[in-house]
Write a protein that binds this DNA or RNA. Structure first.
Ligand SMILES: [Mn+2]
Ligand SMILES: [Mn+2]
Ligand SMILES: [Zn+2]
Ligand SMILES: [Zn+2]
Lengths: 164, 164
DNA sequence: AGGAAATTGAAATTCATTTTCAATTTCCAG
DNA sequence: CTGGAAATTGAAAATGAATTTCAATTTCCT
C-alpha cells in the first residue's frame, strides 16, 4: 500500500510547485484568463503546504503577509485550481469545503482522527478492485467515490473510550 | 451480499412502524420529553417511506395534509429521531442533511446515480473486513466510516458519456 | 384541576458560500 | 509602445440551509 500521509510528506518540493504553476498558466491561457499577482501568491501559498484547507484558512494564512489580498480572491482562486485539475475539493464531517493539491489523476482516501483532527491519506488497489466488483453486481458504473474512515489515529488510540 | 435497495423495499411495513413508534415513545419517556400529535404525525410520515429525505422535503409532504405543522417542528423531530437511534443522518454530494429510517445497529453504504438520483443501499462483509485491515496497517481504530459510489445505475448506464 | 416544564411555529439569526458591482488591472491588436 | 476591451479584484450584499429565539400553547405529573 502506498502511503501518502500528511505527516510523511508535509509539503511540495519547489520543483513540484514550479510544475504546477506552469500547468496553471497553461490552463489560464487556454481559457482566456489572465495571470495576476494575486493568483500567483495564492497558488504559491496553497501548494506550499499539502493540507486540506478551507478558503478561510488559506485566506488567514495569506492575510498575514499580504494584507491587500481579499478573501473573495482566495475563494475564487481555489475554485479555479479545482477546475484546472490542480486542486481537489473535499468535504469531511465538518461540512466545510476543503481544498488539497492534486497531482495528475491520482486518487486517495482518508483516515480522519476525530480526536486530533489529523488526516492520513492512502491508496489501496484491493479496495479499488473490490469497489468495482460491488458496483458490477448492481450493474452500476462508478464515476467517482468517496470513502472516509473516522476514528482514532495511532497516537490518539489511548483516548478512545472503547477499543474492540 | 445483502441487497437493500430503495427499489426493492420501498416502504416500512406497518408492523415496523408500530415497533419504531414504541421505541420512540420509550426514548421520549426516558429523556423526560413529551408525546405530541405533531411528533406522531411526523414520525409516521417519515417511517412510511424508506428514503433519504431532507427536513424540507418531509415538511413539504406533510404540509399537504397538515397545514398547521411547521417546518421547525419537522426539523426538530428528525434531529430527535437521529438522537434516539431511529434515523440516520446522511450528507451526500448535494451537501444537504438527509434522514433515513434506521433499524437497530445496521450499517450500509450507498450507490448514488448521478443521472436519475436513485440511491441503492448495500452491505458487504468483504468490504468491512478490508476496511479494518487497512485501518490496522495505520494503527487506526475506526469508529465509523462513510462510503459512497457516484456513477450511473443500471437503467442510466446508456446515458454515461464514456464507458471504460 | 393546577401548574411546572416541554413544545410549537413564526420569525430572526447564523454562517459558509456565492454573487454583485464599481474600480482596477491585464494584455492583445493595431 | 499604446488604447481599450475584457478579465480581475475586493468590499459589500445576497443566498440558503441550519439553528436559535421567544411568546403562546400543550402536555402530563401531582
Ligand atoms: Mn487528501
Ligand atoms: Mn441509506
Ligand atoms: Zn489523532
Ligand atoms: Zn440512474
Amino acid at each position: 500500500m502506498k502511503l501518502r500521509s500528511s505527516e510523511a510528506s508535509a509539503s511540495n518540493s519547489s520543483q513540484n510547485i514550479i510544475e504546477s504553476k506552469e500547468k496553471l498558466k497553461a490552463f489560464l491561457k487556454k481559457k482566456g484568463f489572465k495571470s495576476t499577482r494575486q493568483r500567483d501568491i495564492i497558488v504559491t501559498e496553497f501548494l506550499k503546504s499539502r493540507e486540506h484547507v478551507t478558503a478561510e484558512e488559506l485566506y488567514n494564512r495569506i492575510n498575514k503577509k499580504y494584507k491587500e489580498i481579499g478573501f473573495t480572491t482566495v475563494y475564487r482562486t481555489l475554485k479555479l485550481l479545482a477546475e484546472s485539475g490542480l486542486a481537489a475539493e473535499q468535504i469531511f464531517a465538518d461540512n466545510l469545503m476543503r481544498y488539497e493539491p492534486l497531482s495528475e489523476e491520482e486518487h486517495h482516501d482518508h483516515l480522519i482522527c476525530v480526536h486530533c483532527g489529523s488526516i492520513t491519506e492512502f491508496e489501496n488497489p484491493k479496495m479499488e478492485r473490490l469497489q468495482k466488483n460491488i458496483a458490477n453486481e448492481f450493474g452500476f458504473y462508478i464515476v467517482n467515490h468517496k470513502m472516509e474512515f473516522y476514528g482514532y489515529c495511532r497516537r490518539c488510540r489511548g483516548s478512545a473510550r472503547t477499543l474492540s
